Amino acid sequence: MPLHVSAAPAPALRSVLAALGSPAVREAHTPALRSVQGPLSPELPLPVHVLDVRDQLVPPAGTPRTRLAGWRFLIRGGDRPVAAADTMLTPDGWAFSHFFEGPYLASTERALRQAEAMPSRYQPRLLSVPELYMLTLWLHGDTDADPAAGSPAATDLLVPLAPAPPGIAPHLPYRVADLLPVLTLRLVPPPLLESTA
């Protein structure tokens, strides 16, 4: 089933287009982006949500809490993505943040292709767990939902992107209800051992 990719806020897209036409491209730490001959285009805007770890230790009614951190665009040069561009919300509105490349770029594209082949329809988002250095493709079941709001539903799917933390298989879809407890265990600090002296 096709994914229901949401439109990014117009100012976020405009900020990326402006950055692509500016010296920021030549100054970016992305050799692949600098070496492309021909036009570059931002595609597949995905809202980036961050899992609020403090709430996961004592989740309210078991519902994970997230906050919108920005929008990410895959930057296509020719027939392939060569980089990504992040935007962030500032007091003045949406603004370009930075370009980057690396393993999450190919991993995101692979996970999106996997999701396209699934029988159900989803709204794709990204869910970041910074404390675990983990990024997942969040497949939200409500395709009409505001992509900038909401929390992962128990039946939503999370597809960890590579590289994933040890013990968590990348590119394997997990239900939120199954993966979140595993992540929560990794986020809880180990108990302090009492001294017997």
Rank of each mutant, 00 (worst) to 15 (best):
L40D: 01
D146R: 15
S15L: 03
G70H: 02
G62H: 06
L44C: 08
A162C: 06
P64V: 11
H29I: 02
P190F: 01
L20F: 05
M118S: 09
V25G: 07
A18E: 13
V25D: 04
T63W: 00
L179V: 13
P45M: 10
A10R: 15
P2T: 04
T63Q: 13
G93H: 07
G78R: 10
P124R: 09
L33H: 09
G93I: 07
A177F: 09
P119V: 12
A12S: 11
E101D: 15
L132R: 06
R80T: 08
R26Y: 00
M1C: 13
A197I: 04
P91Q: 05
D146G: 12
A115C: 04
A169I: 08
A28V: 01
Q56N: 07
D142V: 02
T143Y: 03
L185A: 12
T143C: 11
S120C: 07
P103S: 10
A7W: 00
R14Y: 00
D52S: 09
P152D: 00
R80H: 13
H171C: 01
V82H: 07
Y104V: 07
S22Q: 01
I75S: 01
L185C: 08
R26P: 02
P119C: 07
P170Y: 06
A18G: 10
P45E: 03
D55Y: 11
V58F: 12
R121L: 09
P189H: 01
V188E: 12
